[in-house]
């Protein structure tokens, strides 16, 4: 079975991110492979361990995404492909999805795994969009996955519960928390990954018209989130504090008693 995993490098969740006065975004230089993408990589590796085959990691757009690909290799992926093109620098999720879909068509996997959302732009667009462009079914927010030959069963998280879904490969699965616990790479694998040669494809290589990845949605500026005033701590005797707490809850809850 050939499994492709879509990965992306994003700022570490502890990185300082600040909207400047001029509307640009300042991001501290701390990066990590997207949390949900690592889960997808882990799930792919586990399926490979049982079913055999290979796991290939893909990413679109240069910059730090090579580190996400290396992370996949360090965890145990067999290969990595970077779709790199100047036209992708400004691309939105749909443009990125077009580039990845073209690369996937060339690669011909049986299953595509990705994270349900990237924690920088928080769009959750690429997975479903790639599936749509490939003409595949997809299941997103998946917390459990079984593959048996060509059949799969996935559990999808929805508000208020879980749905069990069955279908046939090929399918795109977008991973949610709980699908798999990502392994910590062994140092030997880390060293190999740090030296690994990366396959790259340009849009021209893939027969993708650069115009088709022009963004439909663009961020004009970034703003600071609405600031909260400094916290008001409840002071005094325990009894007084509990009464104050009760009063705060009741009034904030809309006066319902």
């Amino acid at each position: 079975m050939k499994i492709a995993v879509l990965v992306k490098q994003v700022p570490d969740h502890e990185a300082l991110v600040l909207a400047r006065g001029d509307g640009t975004l300042e991001i501290e230089d701390r990066w990590a492979t997207n949390f949900f993408d690592e889960i997808a990589i882990e799930q792919a590796l586990r399926l490979e361990a049982v079913q055999g085959g290979e796991v290939i990691a893909l990413s679109a757009g240069a910059g730090r995404n090579t580190d996400a690909l290396r992370r996949a290799l360090a965890m145990g992926a067999d290969g990595a492909i970077l779709v790199s093109d100047p036209a992708l620098a400004a691309a939105d999720g749909l443009g990125t999805a077009r580039a990845l879909a073209a690369c996937l068509r060339e690669l011909g996997p049986d299953l595509v795994l990705c994270g349900r959302v990237a924690l920088d732009d928080e769009m959750g667009l690429v997975g479903p969009a790639v599936a749509e462009i490939l003409g595949w079914p997809h299941v997103a927010a998946v917390t459990a996955l079984e593959v048996d030959g060509k059949a799969f069963r996935a559990v999808r998280l929805v508000e208020g519960g879980r749905e069990s879904i069955e279908g046939q490969l090929p399918v795109l699965i977008a991973a949610a928390k709980g699908l798999a616990e990502p392994r910590v790479p062994k140092v030997m694998q880390v060293m190999k990954a740090s030296r690994a040669a990366m396959r790259t494809r340009t849009l021209a290589d893939l027969g993708v018209d650069p115009g088709s990845v022009a963004p439909l949605v663009r961020t004009r500026v970034f703003e600071r989130p609405p600031a909260r005033p400094p916290v008001r701590m409840m002071e005094g005797e325990p009894g007084d504090r509990v009464r104050e707490l009760a009063s705060i809850l009741v009034s904030a809850a809309g006066g319902r008693r």
């Binding site: 990066w31 990590a32 580190d67 290396r70 910590v184 790479p185 880390v190 060293m191 740090s194 030296r195």
Partner: peptide, 18 residues
């Protein structure tokens, strides 16, 4: 080097997690 930076990032992640 890029290899050293990547190595560092992986060790950092391991230390953060474990």
């Amino acid at each position: 080097s890029d290899e050293q930076e990547f190595f560092r990032s992986q060790v950092r992640d391991t230390v953060d997690r474990l």
